[in-house]
Simulated assay, not measured.
Amino acid sequence: MQFEFATAPRIIFGPNSSKDIPDLAATLGTSVCLVIGSSSKRVQWAIDGLKNKGLTPHIISISGEPNVETISQNAVAARQAGCDVVVAVGGGSVLDAGKALAALLTNHADLLDYLEVIGKGQPLTQIPVPLIAVPTTSGTGSEVTSNAVILSPQHGVKVSMRSSEMIPNIAVVDPELTKDMPPSLTAATGMDALTQLMEAFVSNKANPMTDALCREGMLRAARSLHVAYDDGSNSSAREDMALASLFSGIALSNAKLGAVHGFAAPLGGEFKAPHGAVCAALLPSVMEININALRKREPKSPSLDAYTETAVILTGNVNATPEDGIKWVRELCTDMRIPTLKDMGVETTHFSDLADKAAAASSMKGNPVLLSKTELTGILTLAL
Protein backbone atom coordinates (compact mmCIF):
# COMPACT_ATOMS: atom_id res chain seq x y z
CA MET A 1 0.00 0.00 0.00
CA GLN A 2 1.28 3.43 -0.99
CA PHE A 3 -0.40 6.81 -0.76
CA GLU A 4 0.21 10.46 -0.02
CA PHE A 5 -1.94 12.74 2.10
CA ALA A 6 -1.93 16.52 2.18
CA THR A 7 -4.31 19.17 3.46
CA ALA A 8 -4.34 22.74 4.75
CA PRO A 9 -1.54 23.41 7.25
CA ARG A 10 -4.08 24.93 9.65
CA ILE A 11 -7.82 24.32 9.98
CA ILE A 12 -9.87 26.37 12.43
CA PHE A 13 -13.38 25.04 13.00
CA GLY A 14 -16.18 26.27 15.21
CA PRO A 15 -19.00 28.77 15.72
CA ASN A 16 -17.81 32.38 15.47
CA SER A 17 -14.28 31.33 14.53
CA SER A 18 -14.50 33.83 11.65
CA LYS A 19 -14.01 36.73 14.09
CA ASP A 20 -10.30 35.92 14.18
CA ILE A 21 -9.77 36.45 10.44
CA PRO A 22 -8.36 40.03 10.68
CA ASP A 23 -5.77 38.93 13.24
CA LEU A 24 -4.87 35.91 11.12
CA ALA A 25 -4.52 38.02 7.98
CA ALA A 26 -2.21 40.44 9.80
CA THR A 27 0.21 37.60 10.50
CA LEU A 28 0.45 36.70 6.80
CA GLY A 29 0.74 40.02 4.97
CA THR A 30 0.22 43.76 4.90
CA SER A 31 -1.95 44.29 1.80
CA VAL A 32 -5.11 42.18 1.66
CA CYS A 33 -6.98 41.09 -1.44
CA LEU A 34 -10.49 40.25 -0.20
CA VAL A 35 -12.41 38.00 -2.57
CA ILE A 36 -16.16 37.96 -1.99
CA GLY A 37 -19.42 37.07 -3.72
CA SER A 38 -21.81 39.44 -5.45
CA SER A 39 -23.05 41.11 -2.24
CA SER A 40 -20.64 43.09 -0.08
CA LYS A 41 -23.34 43.48 2.58
CA ARG A 42 -23.10 39.78 3.50
CA VAL A 43 -19.40 40.14 4.29
CA GLN A 44 -19.39 43.67 5.70
CA TRP A 45 -18.23 42.17 8.98
CA ALA A 46 -15.04 40.99 7.27
CA ILE A 47 -14.47 44.32 5.53
CA ASP A 48 -14.94 46.24 8.77
CA GLY A 49 -12.76 43.83 10.74
CA LEU A 50 -9.87 44.16 8.27
CA LYS A 51 -10.19 47.95 8.20
CA ASN A 52 -10.13 48.08 11.99
CA LYS A 53 -6.90 46.11 11.87
CA GLY A 54 -5.39 48.67 9.49
CA LEU A 55 -5.77 46.30 6.52
CA THR A 56 -8.13 48.18 4.18
CA PRO A 57 -8.71 45.49 1.55
CA HIS A 58 -8.59 45.51 -2.22
CA ILE A 59 -12.00 43.94 -2.86
CA ILE A 60 -12.74 41.60 -5.75
CA SER A 61 -16.38 40.56 -6.21
CA ILE A 62 -17.07 37.29 -8.00
CA SER A 63 -20.57 36.98 -9.43
CA GLY A 64 -21.43 33.44 -10.51
CA GLU A 65 -18.77 31.03 -11.71
CA PRO A 66 -15.21 32.38 -11.98
CA ASN A 67 -14.21 32.39 -15.63
CA VAL A 68 -10.92 32.73 -17.48
CA GLU A 69 -11.38 36.41 -18.37
CA THR A 70 -12.56 37.49 -14.91
CA ILE A 71 -9.71 35.75 -13.11
CA SER A 72 -7.08 37.03 -15.53
CA GLN A 73 -8.24 40.65 -15.28
CA ASN A 74 -8.55 40.60 -11.50
CA ALA A 75 -5.12 39.02 -11.10
CA VAL A 76 -3.58 41.99 -12.92
CA ALA A 77 -5.56 44.43 -10.74
CA ALA A 78 -4.52 42.66 -7.52
CA ARG A 79 -0.86 42.75 -8.57
CA GLN A 80 -1.12 46.46 -9.30
CA ALA A 81 -2.67 46.97 -5.85
CA GLY A 82 0.37 45.30 -4.29
CA CYS A 83 -1.62 42.55 -2.58
CA ASP A 84 0.50 40.06 -0.64
CA VAL A 85 -2.22 38.00 1.07
CA VAL A 86 -5.64 36.80 -0.08
CA VAL A 87 -8.73 36.31 2.09
CA ALA A 88 -11.61 34.57 0.29
CA VAL A 89 -15.03 34.60 1.99
CA GLY A 90 -17.90 32.91 0.18
CA GLY A 91 -19.12 29.80 -1.56
CA GLY A 92 -17.09 27.40 -3.65
CA SER A 93 -16.80 29.74 -6.62
CA VAL A 94 -15.41 32.52 -4.44
CA LEU A 95 -12.91 30.19 -2.76
CA ASP A 96 -11.81 28.82 -6.13
CA ALA A 97 -11.32 32.38 -7.38
CA GLY A 98 -9.28 33.16 -4.27
CA LYS A 99 -7.01 30.17 -4.84
CA ALA A 100 -6.45 31.07 -8.49
CA LEU A 101 -5.74 34.72 -7.66
CA ALA A 102 -3.32 33.81 -4.86
CA ALA A 103 -1.41 31.68 -7.37
CA LEU A 104 -1.48 34.26 -10.17
CA LEU A 105 -0.20 37.03 -7.89
CA THR A 106 3.20 35.34 -8.04
CA ASN A 107 2.89 33.30 -11.27
CA HIS A 108 2.55 35.72 -14.16
CA ALA A 109 2.10 33.49 -17.21
CA ASP A 110 -1.21 33.39 -19.07
CA LEU A 111 -3.91 31.58 -17.08
CA LEU A 112 -4.41 29.07 -19.89
CA ASP A 113 -0.83 27.94 -19.41
CA TYR A 114 -1.81 26.54 -16.01
CA LEU A 115 -5.25 25.08 -16.84
CA GLU A 116 -5.86 21.35 -17.34
CA VAL A 117 -7.58 19.82 -20.39
CA ILE A 118 -7.97 23.05 -22.43
CA GLY A 119 -4.57 24.58 -21.55
CA LYS A 120 -0.98 23.50 -21.10
CA GLY A 121 -1.36 22.28 -17.52
CA GLN A 122 2.01 23.71 -16.60
CA PRO A 123 3.12 23.62 -12.94
CA LEU A 124 3.42 26.78 -10.88
CA THR A 125 6.97 28.11 -10.70
CA GLN A 126 6.43 30.37 -7.68
CA ILE A 127 4.70 29.73 -4.37
CA PRO A 128 1.32 31.55 -4.20
CA VAL A 129 0.81 34.37 -1.72
CA PRO A 130 -0.74 33.24 1.61
CA LEU A 131 -4.45 32.46 1.47
CA ILE A 132 -7.16 32.29 4.12
CA ALA A 133 -10.28 30.46 2.88
CA VAL A 134 -13.59 31.01 4.66
CA PRO A 135 -16.60 29.04 3.32
CA THR A 136 -20.12 30.43 3.69
CA THR A 137 -21.73 27.32 2.21
CA SER A 138 -21.37 23.64 3.08
CA GLY A 139 -20.63 21.75 -0.09
CA THR A 140 -17.46 22.12 -2.10
CA GLY A 141 -14.82 21.71 0.60
CA SER A 142 -12.81 24.14 -1.51
CA GLU A 143 -11.25 25.58 1.63
CA VAL A 144 -8.91 22.56 1.77
CA THR A 145 -8.53 21.48 -1.87
CA SER A 146 -5.58 21.96 -4.18
CA ASN A 147 -7.44 23.09 -7.28
CA ALA A 148 -9.51 25.99 -8.55
CA VAL A 149 -12.38 25.21 -10.93
CA ILE A 150 -12.63 27.84 -13.65
CA LEU A 151 -15.19 28.18 -16.43
CA SER A 152 -14.05 28.64 -20.02
CA PRO A 153 -17.08 29.90 -21.99
CA GLN A 154 -15.03 29.62 -25.16
CA HIS A 155 -14.60 25.86 -24.67
CA GLY A 156 -17.95 25.25 -22.93
CA VAL A 157 -16.36 23.45 -20.00
CA LYS A 158 -15.12 23.90 -16.44
CA VAL A 159 -11.51 22.91 -15.85
CA SER A 160 -9.03 23.05 -13.00
CA MET A 161 -5.93 24.97 -12.17
CA ARG A 162 -4.18 22.57 -9.82
CA SER A 163 -1.17 22.48 -7.52
CA SER A 164 -0.49 21.24 -4.02
CA GLU A 165 0.84 24.75 -3.36
CA MET A 166 -2.70 26.08 -3.91
CA ILE A 167 -4.11 24.47 -0.77
CA PRO A 168 -5.08 27.42 1.46
CA ASN A 169 -2.69 28.22 4.30
CA ILE A 170 -5.56 28.59 6.74
CA ALA A 171 -9.12 27.27 6.45
CA VAL A 172 -11.58 28.96 8.79
CA VAL A 173 -14.83 26.97 8.94
CA ASP A 174 -17.55 28.76 10.88
CA PRO A 175 -20.90 26.92 10.66
CA GLU A 176 -22.70 30.11 11.73
CA LEU A 177 -21.86 31.64 8.33
CA THR A 178 -24.00 29.00 6.59
CA LYS A 179 -27.24 29.59 8.49
CA ASP A 180 -28.66 32.08 5.99
CA MET A 181 -28.44 29.66 3.06
CA PRO A 182 -31.91 29.14 1.56
CA PRO A 183 -33.24 25.56 1.31
CA SER A 184 -32.43 25.22 -2.41
CA LEU A 185 -28.79 26.21 -1.85
CA THR A 186 -28.57 24.01 1.24
CA ALA A 187 -29.77 21.09 -0.87
CA ALA A 188 -27.43 21.73 -3.81
CA THR A 189 -24.30 22.35 -1.76
CA GLY A 190 -25.10 19.54 0.65
CA MET A 191 -25.50 17.07 -2.21
CA ASP A 192 -22.17 18.23 -3.60
CA ALA A 193 -20.51 17.38 -0.29
CA LEU A 194 -22.26 14.01 -0.09
CA THR A 195 -21.30 13.22 -3.69
CA GLN A 196 -17.67 14.07 -3.03
CA LEU A 197 -17.61 11.86 0.05
CA MET A 198 -19.21 8.96 -1.81
CA GLU A 199 -17.02 9.26 -4.90
CA ALA A 200 -13.83 9.50 -2.85
CA PHE A 201 -14.93 6.45 -0.81
CA VAL A 202 -15.43 4.21 -3.86
CA SER A 203 -12.53 5.75 -5.82
CA ASN A 204 -9.73 3.61 -7.21
CA LYS A 205 -7.38 5.95 -5.31
CA ALA A 206 -9.07 5.64 -1.89
CA ASN A 207 -6.81 5.02 1.10
CA PRO A 208 -7.35 4.33 4.83
CA MET A 209 -7.07 8.00 5.79
CA THR A 210 -9.59 9.24 3.24
CA ASP A 211 -11.88 6.29 4.03
CA ALA A 212 -12.05 7.37 7.67
CA LEU A 213 -12.99 10.92 6.71
CA CYS A 214 -15.58 9.70 4.19
CA ARG A 215 -17.26 7.40 6.69
CA GLU A 216 -17.58 10.17 9.25
CA GLY A 217 -18.66 12.72 6.66
CA MET A 218 -21.31 10.48 5.11
CA LEU A 219 -22.71 9.66 8.54
CA ARG A 220 -23.08 13.34 9.39
CA ALA A 221 -24.57 14.24 6.00
CA ALA A 222 -27.00 11.34 6.14
CA ARG A 223 -28.41 12.45 9.48
CA SER A 224 -28.30 16.21 8.96
CA LEU A 225 -28.68 17.28 5.31
CA HIS A 226 -32.46 16.91 5.27
CA VAL A 227 -32.66 18.53 8.72
CA ALA A 228 -30.65 21.55 7.53
CA TYR A 229 -32.85 21.74 4.42
CA ASP A 230 -35.99 21.80 6.57
CA ASP A 231 -34.62 24.11 9.25
CA GLY A 232 -31.65 26.25 8.32
CA SER A 233 -31.34 27.60 11.85
CA ASN A 234 -30.56 24.18 13.31
CA SER A 235 -27.04 24.64 14.69
CA SER A 236 -26.26 20.93 15.05
CA ALA A 237 -27.29 20.19 11.47
CA ARG A 238 -25.30 23.14 10.13
CA GLU A 239 -22.25 21.98 12.09
CA ASP A 240 -22.60 18.45 10.73
CA MET A 241 -22.83 19.70 7.16
CA ALA A 242 -19.87 22.06 7.60
CA LEU A 243 -17.81 19.09 8.78
CA ALA A 244 -19.12 16.87 5.97
CA SER A 245 -18.08 19.50 3.44
CA LEU A 246 -14.67 19.96 5.04
CA PHE A 247 -14.04 16.22 5.11
CA SER A 248 -15.18 15.86 1.51
CA GLY A 249 -12.66 18.45 0.38
CA ILE A 250 -9.81 16.71 2.16
CA ALA A 251 -10.91 13.33 0.82
CA LEU A 252 -11.28 14.35 -2.82
CA SER A 253 -7.87 16.04 -2.79
CA ASN A 254 -6.27 12.79 -1.70
CA ALA A 255 -8.45 10.10 -3.29
CA LYS A 256 -9.88 11.71 -6.46
CA LEU A 257 -13.50 11.70 -7.60
CA GLY A 258 -15.38 9.88 -10.36
CA ALA A 259 -17.98 9.92 -13.11
CA VAL A 260 -20.36 12.35 -11.39
CA HIS A 261 -17.73 15.08 -11.40
CA GLY A 262 -16.48 13.91 -14.78
CA PHE A 263 -19.89 14.86 -16.19
CA ALA A 264 -20.31 17.90 -13.93
CA ALA A 265 -17.45 19.71 -15.68
CA PRO A 266 -18.98 19.79 -19.20
CA LEU A 267 -22.55 20.06 -17.90
CA GLY A 268 -21.63 23.03 -15.74
CA GLY A 269 -19.89 24.65 -18.69
CA GLU A 270 -22.83 24.34 -21.07
CA PHE A 271 -25.93 24.59 -18.88
CA LYS A 272 -26.77 27.16 -16.24
CA ALA A 273 -27.33 25.03 -13.17
CA PRO A 274 -25.71 24.95 -9.72
CA HIS A 275 -22.80 22.52 -9.55
CA GLY A 276 -24.27 20.70 -6.56
CA ALA A 277 -27.64 20.27 -8.28
CA VAL A 278 -25.89 18.78 -11.31
CA CYS A 279 -24.02 16.34 -9.04
CA ALA A 280 -27.23 15.40 -7.25
CA ALA A 281 -29.08 14.78 -10.51
CA LEU A 282 -26.30 12.46 -11.69
CA LEU A 283 -25.36 10.67 -8.46
CA PRO A 284 -27.94 7.83 -8.30
CA SER A 285 -27.52 7.10 -12.02
CA VAL A 286 -23.73 6.95 -11.73
CA MET A 287 -24.10 4.67 -8.72
CA GLU A 288 -26.33 2.30 -10.70
CA ILE A 289 -24.12 2.17 -13.79
CA ASN A 290 -20.90 1.81 -11.77
CA ILE A 291 -22.30 -0.97 -9.60
CA ASN A 292 -23.55 -2.92 -12.62
CA ALA A 293 -20.24 -2.45 -14.45
CA LEU A 294 -18.23 -3.59 -11.43
CA ARG A 295 -20.36 -6.70 -10.98
CA LYS A 296 -19.88 -7.63 -14.64
CA ARG A 297 -16.19 -6.85 -15.08
CA GLU A 298 -14.58 -6.51 -11.64
CA PRO A 299 -16.70 -8.51 -9.16
CA LYS A 300 -13.87 -8.62 -6.60
CA SER A 301 -13.27 -4.89 -6.63
CA PRO A 302 -13.11 -3.30 -3.15
CA SER A 303 -15.25 -0.51 -4.59
CA LEU A 304 -18.24 -2.89 -4.61
CA ASP A 305 -17.77 -3.42 -0.88
CA ALA A 306 -17.49 0.36 -0.50
CA TYR A 307 -20.83 0.82 -2.24
CA THR A 308 -22.40 -1.66 0.18
CA GLU A 309 -20.87 0.10 3.18
CA THR A 310 -22.09 3.43 1.80
CA ALA A 311 -25.63 2.08 1.68
CA VAL A 312 -25.36 0.89 5.29
CA ILE A 313 -24.17 4.33 6.43
CA LEU A 314 -26.84 6.22 4.50
CA THR A 315 -29.79 4.04 5.44
CA GLY A 316 -28.74 2.99 8.93
CA ASN A 317 -29.61 -0.60 7.96
CA VAL A 318 -26.77 -3.07 8.52
CA ASN A 319 -28.29 -5.37 5.89
CA ALA A 320 -28.53 -2.69 3.21
CA THR A 321 -27.51 -3.48 -0.37
CA PRO A 322 -25.97 -1.08 -2.91
CA GLU A 323 -29.44 -0.78 -4.46
CA ASP A 324 -30.78 0.43 -1.12
CA GLY A 325 -28.17 3.20 -1.25
CA ILE A 326 -29.32 4.21 -4.72
CA LYS A 327 -32.94 4.31 -3.56
CA TRP A 328 -32.02 6.42 -0.51
CA VAL A 329 -30.19 8.99 -2.65
CA ARG A 330 -33.04 9.18 -5.19
CA GLU A 331 -35.61 9.73 -2.45
CA LEU A 332 -33.48 12.44 -0.83
CA CYS A 333 -33.16 14.26 -4.17
CA THR A 334 -36.93 14.06 -4.65
CA ASP A 335 -37.64 15.31 -1.13
CA MET A 336 -35.31 18.28 -1.62
CA ARG A 337 -36.71 19.07 -5.08
CA ILE A 338 -33.45 18.61 -6.94
CA PRO A 339 -34.07 19.35 -10.65
CA THR A 340 -33.45 16.66 -13.26
CA LEU A 341 -31.05 17.06 -16.17
CA LYS A 342 -34.10 17.65 -18.36
CA ASP A 343 -35.10 20.54 -16.10
CA MET A 344 -31.63 21.99 -16.69
CA GLY A 345 -32.09 21.93 -20.46
CA VAL A 346 -30.22 18.73 -21.30
CA GLU A 347 -31.59 16.76 -24.27
CA THR A 348 -30.66 13.43 -25.83
CA THR A 349 -28.95 15.28 -28.68
CA HIS A 350 -26.36 16.48 -26.16
CA PHE A 351 -25.48 12.99 -24.90
CA SER A 352 -22.69 12.00 -27.29
CA ASP A 353 -20.73 15.24 -26.87
CA LEU A 354 -21.20 15.24 -23.09
CA ALA A 355 -20.03 11.62 -22.85
CA ASP A 356 -16.89 12.40 -24.86
CA LYS A 357 -16.06 15.42 -22.70
CA ALA A 358 -16.74 13.51 -19.48
CA ALA A 359 -14.43 10.69 -20.57
CA ALA A 360 -11.63 13.25 -21.02
CA ALA A 361 -12.24 15.03 -17.69
CA SER A 362 -9.56 14.75 -15.02
CA SER A 363 -12.16 13.74 -12.40
CA MET A 364 -12.94 10.57 -14.33
CA LYS A 365 -9.52 9.15 -13.40
CA GLY A 366 -10.77 8.18 -9.96
CA ASN A 367 -13.89 6.33 -11.10
CA PRO A 368 -13.79 2.77 -9.73
CA VAL A 369 -14.28 1.22 -13.17
CA LEU A 370 -13.56 2.32 -16.74
CA LEU A 371 -16.90 3.07 -18.37
CA SER A 372 -17.68 2.64 -22.05
CA LYS A 373 -19.36 5.39 -24.05
CA THR A 374 -22.56 3.34 -23.99
CA GLU A 375 -22.41 3.25 -20.20
CA LEU A 376 -21.66 6.97 -20.05
CA THR A 377 -24.66 7.83 -22.19
CA GLY A 378 -26.66 5.37 -20.09
CA ILE A 379 -25.95 7.54 -17.05
CA LEU A 380 -27.41 10.55 -18.84
CA THR A 381 -30.45 8.57 -19.95
CA LEU A 382 -31.19 7.50 -16.38
CA ALA A 383 -30.62 11.02 -15.05
CA LEU A 384 -32.79 12.77 -17.65
Rank of each mutant, 00 (worst) to 15 (best):
R10F: 08
G14A: 07
G14S: 04
N16L: 13
K19Q: 15
K19S: 15
K19W: 15
L24Y: 05
L24W: 02
A25V: 11
A25W: 08
A26N: 14
L28W: 08
G29W: 09
C33F: 04
S39R: 12
V43R: 02
P57L: 09
I59W: 14
S61H: 09
G64E: 13
E65M: 03
I71Q: 09
I71K: 07
N74M: 12
R79A: 04
R79H: 06
Q80A: 15
Q80T: 14
A81T: 03
V86C: 06
V86D: 01
V87D: 05
V87P: 00
V89H: 01
G90A: 10
V94M: 01
V94E: 00
L95Q: 04
D96C: 08
G98V: 03
L104T: 09
L105M: 13
T106G: 14
N107M: 11
N107W: 10
D110R: 15
L112M: 15
E116F: 10
K120P: 06
G121E: 07
T125W: 09
T125M: 11
I127E: 10
I132R: 03
A133K: 00
P135R: 15
T136W: 08
T145P: 06
S146D: 14
A148H: 00
I150Y: 01
L151W: 07
P153W: 02
H155G: 07
G156Q: 13
S164I: 08
S164N: 12
E165F: 14
V173Y: 00
L177P: 00
T178K: 02
K179C: 11
G190S: 11
Q196N: 13
E199A: 07
F201K: 06
K205L: 15
N207Y: 10
D211R: 15
A212H: 12
A212E: 12
L213D: 05
E216A: 13
L219G: 15
R223H: 14
H226V: 08
Y229Q: 07
S233R: 12
M241D: 02
L243T: 03
A244G: 12
L246N: 06
N254V: 09
N254C: 09
K256C: 14
K256Q: 11
A264V: 06
E270R: 13
E270V: 11
A273E: 11
P274D: 10
A280L: 06
L282F: 12
S285C: 00
S285E: 03
A293T: 05
A293N: 02
L294M: 03
E298V: 04
P302L: 06
A306I: 05
A311I: 04
V312W: 14
I313Q: 05
T315G: 10
T315Y: 11
A320H: 06
D324G: 11
W328E: 03
T340D: 08
T340R: 05
L341W: 00
D343F: 08
M344S: 02
G345M: 10
E347W: 10
E347H: 11
T348E: 08
T349L: 04
H350P: 07
H350S: 13
K357D: 11
A359E: 08
A361W: 04
A361I: 12
M364H: 06
M364E: 05
G366K: 01
K373H: 04
E375H: 03
I379C: 07
T381K: 13
L384Y: 10
